[in-house]
Measured scan of single mutants.
Amino acid sequence: MDVFMKGLSKAKEGVVAAAEKTKQGVAEAAGKTKEGVLYVGSKTKEGVVHGVATVAEKTKEQVTNVGGAVVTGVTAVAQKTVEGAGSIAAATGFVKKDQLGKNEEGAPQEGILEDMPVDPDNEAYEMPSEEGYQDYEPEA
């Protein structure tokens, strides 16, 4: 019985440690998101679009440190934060509304985080759909 109880105690310690790591990862992701939003706020009209992409990228980098179902929630929060940063930029006159959601080359930025393969159960990952990809044929 002692062996059984000791095993359960060790398992509990492992769960607590994993929860603490997840909590730490979420806190880091939130900190990076805040950094990115402050970065966007300090940019001029020309830099705002690039700044919004930076927020998304920093958040995406930190999301990889967070495991399990938390990833889905962090990704949703990050996307809403990026959308909010863009709205703030438009409201303050840093950028025109028609410039939001495009990178410096004018290509749409939507789907940055949505296409990231995420499995809350950590069982399997699927690649994003290939609808947006084109076949590449090298020139002879």
Rank of each mutant, 00 (worst) to 15 (best):
E20V: 04
T54Q: 14
T59A: 13
G68Q: 03
E20M: 08
T75R: 05
V77Q: 02
E137A: 15
T75C: 10
T75E: 08
E104Q: 00
V52W: 07
L8S: 00
K45P: 00
G86R: 11
T22I: 00
K32W: 15
E35G: 08
Y136D: 02
A90F: 11
K21D: 01
K60Q: 12
L100E: 08
A91L: 09
P108W: 03
G73M: 04
E28K: 07
E131P: 14
E123W: 11
D2P: 01
Y39A: 04
K6A: 08
Q109M: 09
K96I: 12
T44N: 03
A30Y: 14
N122Q: 14
E104M: 02
A56C: 15
V63H: 00
A29Y: 14
P108N: 09
G7E: 05
V16W: 06
P138N: 12
A53C: 02
G47H: 15
L113A: 10
E20Q: 06
T75I: 13
A27K: 15
F4T: 00
Q79W: 15
K58S: 06
T72R: 08
K102S: 15
A69L: 02
V37R: 01
Q134F: 04
A19C: 05
G67Y: 15
T81H: 02
M127V: 13
E35N: 14
K23I: 03
G47N: 14
D98Q: 13
H50S: 05
E104N: 04
M1Y: 00
V74N: 01
L113H: 15
M127L: 09
E131D: 07
Q24T: 05
V49P: 02
D2T: 05
T72D: 08
A30M: 13
E114W: 13
P138M: 12
A53H: 00
P117L: 05
T59L: 06
A124Y: 07
E61K: 06
V82A: 03
Y133N: 12
Y125R: 05
G67H: 13
V49S: 06
S42Y: 04
A11D: 00
E130N: 09
A11H: 01
P138H: 05
K96L: 15
D115C: 11
V71L: 14
M127F: 13
V16H: 11
Y136P: 06
E105S: 09
A11L: 12
V63D: 02
P120G: 06
G132E: 14
P138L: 11
G68S: 13
A85N: 04
A29C: 12
G31C: 10
G67K: 10
K43I: 15
S42A: 12
A27R: 11
T92S: 07
Q99I: 09
Y133M: 15
G93S: 08
G106R: 01
M116H: 11
G67N: 01
V15W: 10
D2Y: 09
V77G: 06
A56D: 01
K12Q: 03
V82L: 13
V37K: 01
G93N: 08
D115I: 04
E123Q: 06
E137P: 14
A30N: 00
N103F: 11
G132K: 14
A69I: 10
G84S: 10
G93C: 07
Q79K: 06
G47W: 11
V63I: 07
A30D: 00
M116I: 08
D135S: 12
K60Y: 15
S9C: 06
K21T: 04
G41L: 10
S42E: 08
D119S: 02
N103E: 06
K21C: 13
Q62C: 10
A78Y: 10
T33R: 01
A124H: 13
I88T: 05
E83T: 11
L113I: 12
V63M: 02
G73D: 05
M116A: 10
G68N: 15
Q79T: 09
K34Y: 10
V40D: 00
Q24K: 15
E61F: 07
K97H: 08
I112W: 11
P120C: 04
V52Y: 14
M5K: 07
E131G: 01
F4D: 00
K23H: 03
T72M: 12
E105Y: 11
T33D: 00
V40Q: 00
E104S: 04
Y133D: 11
G93D: 06
V66N: 03
S129N: 12
V82T: 03
K58L: 08
A90V: 12
K102Q: 11
V82Y: 04
Q79L: 13
P117I: 11
M5N: 04
P117Q: 11
A124V: 11
E126Q: 09
G93Q: 05
G7P: 01
A29I: 12
V49E: 07
K97W: 15
P138A: 08
E126W: 13
